[in-house]
């Protein structure tokens, strides 16, 4: 092991993972390269676009801004963890049915952001809450309207 490398153990999508790498390596890159979970995307590398969104200990975070050192002992969930064994999650189904995904690159982050948004509110979200709640996830294709519809419809189910 080189001098600045460390042993990190973390829980990713329910599995215990041990890796040896640089502590400052971005969690995003560890997920994509070391663990092979490429569903989490890089859009900007500076926490602006939300394409790299994951859950860390149940909270939505930008994985491009987290050094893997700080993921030690944490519970990480990526988009790959969302679908059920035999069917898609209701949010995924809703995005499919209501045109919430076009090119799809922002979609994993957008869907996880939606999951957190729906989990935080008991009762229906207002339009404003949805619009503001997704403000950290940029989309260039849809113009957002069908994403709002997908969120609203996912709520109902």
């Amino acid at each position: 092991m080189e001098t600045n490398q460390v042993n990190i153990s973390l829980n990713v999508n329910g599995k215990k993972i041990q890796i040896t790498t640089y502590g400052m390596k971005r969690l995003l890159d560890v997920l994509r390269e070391d663990i092979g979970l490429t569903g989490t995307k890089e859009g900007c590398g500076e926490g602006e676009c939300g394409a790299c969104s994951i859950f860390m200990d149940g909270q939505l975070v930008n994985s491009c801004l987290i050094p893997v050192f700080q993921a030690e002992g944490k519970k990480i969930e990526t988009i790959e963890n969302l679908e059920g064994k035999t069917e898609l999650h209701k949010i995924q189904k809703s995005f499919l049915q209501h045109g919430g995904a076009q090119c799809g690159i922002c979609t994993p982050g957008m869907i996880l952001a939606t999951k957190e948004l729906l989990a935080k509110k008991s009762g229906k979200l207002t339009a404003k809450e949805i619009e503001e709640g997704l403000g950290g996830n940029l989309c260039r294709c849809t113009g957002y309207l069908k994403i709002f519809e997908s969120v609203k419809q996912a709520e109902g189910k």
Binding site: G47, Q59, L60, G136
Partner: peptide
């Protein structure tokens, strides 16, 4: 501040 994912950190 930023957006939710930033606020969480």
């Amino acid at each position: 501040v930023g957006a939710r994912a930033i606020q969480n950190r």
